Simulated assay, not measured.
Amino acid sequence: MNGAGRATYNPRPTMTDPRHAQPRTPPSDVPFLRQVKSYVLRAGRTTAAQAKAYEVYGPRFLLPYAPDQRFDAKAAFGRTAPLVLEIGFGMGGATAHIASVRPQDDFLCCEVHEPGVGALLKLAGDGGLQNIRILRHDAVEVMDHMLADASLDGVHVFFPDPWHKTKHHKRRLIQGPFVNRLARKLKPGGYLHLATDWQPYAEQMLEVLRAEPLLRNTVGDEHGGYAPKPDYRPLTKFENRGLKLGHGVWDLVWRRV
């Protein structure tokens, strides 16, 4: 999530939880998030350029959350192509890069962080990207209510919130029930790509993935079960800074059996 609105899991939110706060409203003709249930919004102000991107590019790239109907990828993208779900894209730099180097694939991107959505709208619009659509809504609800089983060719979850304190580990997004739900949304042969810069979380991710019978590791037991960074995932500024400080980054790439 590149340090913007990191993905997390909240099993029992309360109405007094600040995560239920309404984000500032974008232009009235643009669909937007009403409730946040599985993300913590980081502080950040939408810039004038990002606000302009909502107005100019929002109608082209933003999709409404529609829990009463299945997502129609062909209608949304105007073509039939492999579909990848991106859960939490931060400020959108990595997402725009991946979409640009993989024009044959379509990317359904979920993020609740308003400045991040504005930033990706600007990158997609200015860059002429045709294979991005954005849902400014909780990815867990999108997955549960809009996506059919075996409808995805891939899922990306990059740098979700590690929730460092032990008492907060229950809020981590990558847990057994969630991974099982993700696996069921993947087509046979579809992949799940996770990345984290926090080793204890990487170890938990590996443990959770190993316990999921619907998934198999693409690298087996090589390199401790962690995959080399795929070429399509760029190094973010946040990641580069960490690497210079001697921090590690762990990629996990598993496939649906």
Rank of each mutant, 00 (worst) to 15 (best):
F71L: 07
D197L: 02
S151C: 11
P177S: 08
D126M: 02
R6H: 15
H164G: 02
P228R: 08
V101Y: 01
Q69D: 09
A119V: 04
N180D: 15
R181Q: 15
A66L: 15
A49S: 14
D138Y: 00
G154Y: 05
E55M: 05
D29E: 15
R181C: 04
W254H: 10
L182M: 15
D251W: 11
G225A: 09
A48V: 07
V40M: 09
P230Y: 07
K237G: 08
Q22G: 00
T166Y: 00
N10K: 10
P82Y: 04
L235E: 13
F159A: 08
N2F: 07
K187Y: 09
Q50R: 09
L186T: 03
R70M: 09
Q35F: 12
G93F: 01
K37P: 03
M143T: 12
P200A: 07
R171L: 12
I132F: 02
Q50G: 13
M15H: 07
E239K: 09
G225E: 13
R181S: 11
S38F: 09
A51D: 12
A43W: 11
P160L: 12
G242M: 11
A124H: 06
A148D: 14
G116R: 06
L85I: 08
A76Q: 02
E86W: 07
D161K: 06
D153F: 07
L152R: 10
W250F: 08
G93D: 12
W198T: 05
K165G: 00
L243A: 12
Y57N: 03
A51H: 09
N2Y: 04
K167V: 06
D197V: 03
E86P: 02
L235W: 10
R60I: 15
R233A: 04
F178N: 14
E111D: 12
I98F: 01
A94S: 13
G248K: 14
T46W: 02
A49T: 11
V30N: 05
F32A: 12
H247G: 00
L194W: 05
L252N: 07
L245R: 01
L83M: 13
G90K: 01
A124T: 01
G5I: 03
D231Y: 06
D68E: 15
R216A: 14
E203Y: 00
R136N: 14
Q22D: 04
Q22L: 08
L123M: 06
Y65T: 10
K187L: 13
A4L: 07
P103K: 09
